[in-house]
Amino acid sequence: MNNEMKETSKITDKRTVLKGDYRKNIMLWCLFTAAIIFLVLDLFFYRHSGFEPGSLGARIEGFAGAYSLIGLASMIFLIFVSKIIKKVIARNLDYYGDKDV
């Protein structure tokens, strides 16, 4: 009986995990598709640039998918920089003593 229950529990756990992974993957693919759609749309619509024509800013902004690239690059940068900075600024929760946190 006990073994049976353990088996069932294992199966349920596996299903939950699979379900979780499946959900995450679906979400990832949906976002990826959305990013591609916005990238493609960028090619079809007139991009109004605020920068003076011919300036460096206008050239960067005028690049198709510039915003996607900036978003992607800056968030990857954010994750890596935060990992490094955490090593410098992270302290134990009781760093300021018992009475104060």
Partner: peptide
């Protein structure tokens, strides 16, 4: 479109 590009890229990185 540009704002949605920025947000979808950031969301993609978050989920990944």
């Amino acid at each position: 479109i540009t704002q949605l590009q920025l947000l979808s890229a950031a969301a993609l990185v978050y989920v990944y």
